[in-house]
Amino acid sequence: MLKKRLIAVLILREGQVVQSVRFKHTNVIHYNPVHAVEAFNKWAVDELVVLNVTRSANSAAQFAEAVASISRHCFVPLAVGGWITDEAYATTLLRSGADKLILNTAFADDTNLVNMLAARHGRQCIIASMDVKLNEGKQTVHVDRGRRDTGIEPLEWAKRAVDNGAGEIFFNSVDHDGARKGYALDVLGRICAAVPVPVIAFGGVFSWDHLVQGISAGAEAVAAANIFHYSEQATRKAKAFLAEAGVSVRQEGRLLT
Protein backbone atom coordinates (compact mmCIF):
# COMPACT_ATOMS: atom_id res chain seq x y z
CA MET A 1 0.00 0.00 0.00
CA LEU A 2 1.25 3.49 -0.82
CA LYS A 3 2.26 5.56 2.17
CA LYS A 4 1.07 9.08 2.97
CA ARG A 5 3.91 11.51 2.36
CA LEU A 6 5.38 14.26 4.49
CA ILE A 7 6.83 17.03 2.36
CA ALA A 8 9.16 19.83 3.42
CA VAL A 9 8.83 23.04 1.41
CA LEU A 10 11.71 25.44 0.94
CA ILE A 11 10.69 28.93 -0.14
CA LEU A 12 13.63 30.55 -1.91
CA ARG A 13 14.05 34.24 -2.55
CA GLU A 14 17.25 35.16 -4.36
CA GLY A 15 18.69 31.76 -3.44
CA GLN A 16 18.01 32.05 0.30
CA VAL A 17 15.40 30.19 2.34
CA VAL A 18 12.75 32.63 3.59
CA GLN A 19 9.68 32.50 5.76
CA SER A 20 6.31 32.87 4.06
CA VAL A 21 3.42 34.73 5.69
CA ARG A 22 0.44 35.45 3.48
CA PHE A 23 2.81 35.28 0.49
CA LYS A 24 5.10 37.98 1.93
CA HIS A 25 8.69 36.85 2.27
CA THR A 26 10.77 38.97 4.57
CA ASN A 27 12.65 36.84 7.11
CA VAL A 28 15.62 34.83 5.93
CA ILE A 29 15.77 31.44 7.67
CA HIS A 30 18.82 29.93 5.97
CA TYR A 31 21.35 31.73 3.81
CA ASN A 32 22.29 28.44 2.16
CA PRO A 33 19.39 26.08 1.30
CA VAL A 34 21.74 23.08 1.26
CA HIS A 35 21.99 23.26 5.06
CA ALA A 36 18.24 22.86 5.36
CA VAL A 37 18.21 20.01 2.84
CA GLU A 38 20.94 18.12 4.66
CA ALA A 39 18.92 18.30 7.86
CA PHE A 40 15.67 17.17 6.18
CA ASN A 41 17.50 14.29 4.53
CA LYS A 42 18.53 12.99 7.92
CA TRP A 43 15.12 13.67 9.38
CA ALA A 44 12.96 11.23 7.42
CA VAL A 45 11.25 13.69 5.08
CA ASP A 46 9.62 11.91 2.09
CA GLU A 47 9.89 14.56 -0.56
CA LEU A 48 11.16 18.11 -1.03
CA VAL A 49 9.43 21.02 -2.72
CA VAL A 50 11.53 24.05 -3.59
CA LEU A 51 9.79 27.21 -4.78
CA ASN A 52 11.37 30.32 -6.25
CA VAL A 53 9.38 33.35 -5.02
CA THR A 54 11.88 35.97 -6.18
CA ARG A 55 9.93 38.81 -7.78
CA SER A 56 12.00 39.01 -10.91
CA ALA A 57 12.14 36.46 -13.73
CA ASN A 58 15.89 37.19 -13.84
CA SER A 59 16.23 34.92 -10.84
CA ALA A 60 15.63 31.83 -13.01
CA ALA A 61 19.29 30.98 -13.65
CA GLN A 62 20.28 31.49 -10.02
CA PHE A 63 17.37 29.26 -8.96
CA ALA A 64 18.46 26.49 -11.34
CA GLU A 65 21.91 26.61 -9.73
CA ALA A 66 20.32 26.35 -6.29
CA VAL A 67 18.32 23.32 -7.53
CA ALA A 68 21.53 21.70 -8.78
CA SER A 69 23.27 22.11 -5.42
CA ILE A 70 20.19 20.96 -3.51
CA SER A 71 19.86 17.85 -5.70
CA ARG A 72 23.40 16.79 -4.85
CA HIS A 73 22.23 16.31 -1.26
CA CYS A 74 18.65 15.25 -1.84
CA PHE A 75 17.94 11.51 -2.03
CA VAL A 76 14.18 11.79 -2.05
CA PRO A 77 12.02 13.14 -4.90
CA LEU A 78 12.56 16.82 -5.59
CA ALA A 79 9.81 19.06 -7.01
CA VAL A 80 10.62 22.60 -8.05
CA GLY A 81 8.68 25.61 -9.27
CA GLY A 82 8.64 29.34 -9.93
CA TRP A 83 9.09 31.21 -13.21
CA ILE A 84 8.71 28.15 -15.42
CA THR A 85 7.52 29.94 -18.54
CA ASP A 86 9.09 27.93 -21.34
CA GLU A 87 10.16 24.43 -22.25
CA ALA A 88 13.86 25.19 -22.28
CA TYR A 89 13.84 26.33 -18.65
CA ALA A 90 11.77 23.30 -17.63
CA THR A 91 14.44 21.09 -19.21
CA THR A 92 17.18 23.05 -17.42
CA LEU A 93 15.50 22.39 -14.07
CA LEU A 94 15.09 18.67 -14.81
CA ARG A 95 18.71 18.47 -15.93
CA SER A 96 19.65 20.24 -12.67
CA GLY A 97 18.24 17.26 -10.78
CA ALA A 98 14.55 18.05 -10.31
CA ASP A 99 12.10 15.15 -10.61
CA LYS A 100 8.89 17.16 -10.87
CA LEU A 101 7.91 20.60 -12.11
CA ILE A 102 5.45 22.79 -10.25
CA LEU A 103 3.50 25.21 -12.40
CA ASN A 104 1.02 27.82 -11.28
CA THR A 105 0.50 30.81 -13.57
CA ALA A 106 1.03 28.67 -16.68
CA PHE A 107 -2.23 26.85 -15.85
CA ALA A 108 -3.97 30.19 -16.42
CA ASP A 109 -1.89 31.77 -19.16
CA ASP A 110 -0.18 29.04 -21.14
CA THR A 111 -1.91 25.67 -21.05
CA ASN A 112 -0.04 24.75 -24.23
CA LEU A 113 3.18 24.75 -22.24
CA VAL A 114 1.58 22.50 -19.61
CA ASN A 115 0.24 20.09 -22.27
CA MET A 116 3.60 19.92 -23.95
CA LEU A 117 5.55 19.32 -20.73
CA ALA A 118 3.09 16.60 -19.68
CA ALA A 119 3.39 14.87 -23.06
CA ARG A 120 7.16 15.07 -23.05
CA HIS A 121 7.95 14.14 -19.44
CA GLY A 122 4.79 12.35 -18.34
CA ARG A 123 1.99 13.56 -16.10
CA GLN A 124 3.75 12.32 -12.99
CA CYS A 125 6.27 15.10 -13.64
CA ILE A 126 3.70 17.92 -13.61
CA ILE A 127 2.29 19.42 -10.41
CA ALA A 128 -0.37 22.12 -10.59
CA SER A 129 0.08 24.56 -7.76
CA MET A 130 -3.15 26.37 -6.90
CA ASP A 131 -3.47 29.27 -4.49
CA VAL A 132 -6.96 29.98 -3.22
CA LYS A 133 -7.98 33.21 -1.55
CA LEU A 134 -11.18 34.46 -0.01
CA ASN A 135 -12.47 37.46 -1.87
CA GLU A 136 -15.83 39.07 -1.01
CA GLY A 137 -17.02 35.90 0.66
CA LYS A 138 -16.01 33.67 -2.24
CA GLN A 139 -12.97 31.40 -2.67
CA THR A 140 -11.24 31.84 -6.00
CA VAL A 141 -7.92 30.74 -7.44
CA HIS A 142 -5.17 33.34 -7.67
CA VAL A 143 -2.07 33.17 -9.85
CA ASP A 144 1.14 35.17 -10.23
CA ARG A 145 2.23 34.56 -6.63
CA GLY A 146 -1.23 35.23 -5.27
CA ARG A 147 -1.59 38.65 -6.86
CA ARG A 148 -3.96 38.04 -9.73
CA ASP A 149 -7.52 36.79 -9.17
CA THR A 150 -8.63 34.46 -11.96
CA GLY A 151 -12.18 34.54 -10.61
CA ILE A 152 -12.33 30.76 -11.08
CA GLU A 153 -13.79 28.57 -8.37
CA PRO A 154 -11.25 26.09 -6.84
CA LEU A 155 -13.04 22.86 -7.81
CA GLU A 156 -13.43 23.96 -11.41
CA TRP A 157 -9.77 25.04 -11.49
CA ALA A 158 -8.51 21.73 -10.10
CA LYS A 159 -10.50 19.70 -12.64
CA ARG A 160 -9.21 21.84 -15.51
CA ALA A 161 -5.65 21.46 -14.23
CA VAL A 162 -5.97 17.67 -14.36
CA ASP A 163 -7.47 17.86 -17.87
CA ASN A 164 -4.48 19.95 -18.91
CA GLY A 165 -1.98 17.34 -17.75
CA ALA A 166 -1.41 17.80 -14.01
CA GLY A 167 -0.45 14.54 -12.30
CA GLU A 168 -0.70 16.09 -8.85
CA ILE A 169 -2.20 19.16 -7.17
CA PHE A 170 -0.26 21.33 -4.73
CA PHE A 171 -2.95 23.13 -2.76
CA ASN A 172 -2.30 26.34 -0.86
CA SER A 173 -4.42 29.09 0.62
CA VAL A 174 -3.11 32.65 0.66
CA ASP A 175 -5.19 33.36 3.76
CA HIS A 176 -3.82 30.34 5.61
CA ASP A 177 -0.20 30.74 4.50
CA GLY A 178 1.87 31.43 7.62
CA ALA A 179 -1.34 32.04 9.63
CA ARG A 180 -0.69 29.08 11.97
CA LYS A 181 -4.28 27.84 11.98
CA GLY A 182 -3.92 24.74 9.85
CA TYR A 183 -4.90 24.01 6.25
CA ALA A 184 -7.98 25.47 4.56
CA LEU A 185 -9.69 22.15 5.24
CA ASP A 186 -13.07 22.78 3.68
CA VAL A 187 -11.80 23.65 0.19
CA LEU A 188 -9.00 21.09 0.48
CA GLY A 189 -11.46 18.30 1.28
CA ARG A 190 -13.71 19.18 -1.64
CA ILE A 191 -10.80 19.18 -4.08
CA CYS A 192 -9.45 15.85 -2.78
CA ALA A 193 -12.88 14.29 -3.31
CA ALA A 194 -13.25 15.72 -6.81
CA VAL A 195 -9.95 14.96 -8.58
CA PRO A 196 -8.43 11.57 -9.48
CA VAL A 197 -4.83 12.69 -8.82
CA PRO A 198 -2.99 13.00 -5.48
CA VAL A 199 -3.40 16.29 -3.63
CA ILE A 200 -0.60 17.82 -1.54
CA ALA A 201 -1.91 20.04 1.26
CA PHE A 202 0.08 23.15 2.11
CA GLY A 203 -0.30 26.41 3.99
CA GLY A 204 -0.84 27.14 7.66
CA VAL A 205 0.65 24.22 9.59
CA PHE A 206 1.60 25.16 13.14
CA SER A 207 1.06 21.87 14.98
CA TRP A 208 1.59 18.24 14.01
CA ASP A 209 -2.13 17.73 14.44
CA HIS A 210 -2.69 20.07 11.48
CA LEU A 211 -0.90 17.46 9.36
CA VAL A 212 -3.27 14.74 10.56
CA GLN A 213 -6.22 17.02 9.68
CA GLY A 214 -4.88 17.34 6.13
CA ILE A 215 -4.72 13.57 5.73
CA SER A 216 -8.22 13.21 7.19
CA ALA A 217 -9.46 15.75 4.64
CA GLY A 218 -8.24 13.38 1.91
CA ALA A 219 -4.75 14.65 1.04
CA GLU A 220 -2.22 12.05 -0.14
CA ALA A 221 0.63 14.21 1.12
CA VAL A 222 0.98 16.95 3.71
CA ALA A 223 3.46 19.77 3.35
CA ALA A 224 4.75 22.53 5.56
CA ALA A 225 7.57 25.05 5.44
CA ASN A 226 8.15 27.47 8.33
CA ILE A 227 7.46 25.00 11.14
CA PHE A 228 10.13 22.56 10.00
CA HIS A 229 12.85 25.13 10.50
CA TYR A 230 12.07 25.84 14.14
CA SER A 231 13.32 22.74 15.88
CA GLU A 232 15.83 19.93 15.60
CA GLN A 233 14.50 16.69 14.09
CA ALA A 234 11.26 18.51 13.20
CA THR A 235 10.27 16.32 10.25
CA ARG A 236 11.13 13.16 12.17
CA LYS A 237 8.88 14.29 15.04
CA ALA A 238 6.11 15.10 12.56
CA LYS A 239 6.38 11.60 11.04
CA ALA A 240 6.26 10.00 14.48
CA PHE A 241 3.14 12.03 15.30
CA LEU A 242 1.45 10.94 12.06
CA ALA A 243 2.30 7.28 12.71
CA GLU A 244 0.97 7.56 16.25
CA ALA A 245 -2.28 8.98 14.86
CA GLY A 246 -2.66 5.88 12.69
CA VAL A 247 -1.46 7.38 9.40
CA SER A 248 0.53 4.92 7.29
CA VAL A 249 3.90 6.62 6.69
CA ARG A 250 7.15 5.51 5.12
CA GLN A 251 9.28 3.03 7.02
CA GLU A 252 12.85 4.12 6.90
CA GLY A 253 14.01 0.49 6.93
CA ARG A 254 16.58 0.77 9.71
CA LEU A 255 19.94 -0.51 8.67
CA LEU A 256 21.04 -3.64 10.45
CA THR A 257 24.64 -2.58 10.80
Binding site: M1, L2, D46, Q124, P196, P198, G253
Partner: peptide
Protein backbone atom coordinates in the same frame (compact mmCIF):
# COMPACT_ATOMS: atom_id res chain seq x y z
CA UNK B 1 -5.83 1.49 -6.79
CA UNK B 2 -4.38 4.49 -8.61
CA UNK B 3 -2.23 4.24 -11.71
CA UNK B 4 0.50 5.48 -11.97
CA UNK B 5 1.82 3.78 -8.87
CA UNK B 6 3.54 6.82 -7.41
CA UNK B 7 5.04 7.19 -3.98
CA UNK B 8 6.67 5.17 -1.21
CA UNK B 9 5.79 1.51 -0.97
CA UNK B 10 7.19 -1.53 0.81
CA UNK B 11 9.92 -3.66 -0.69
Amino acid sequence: IKVPHMGWNAL
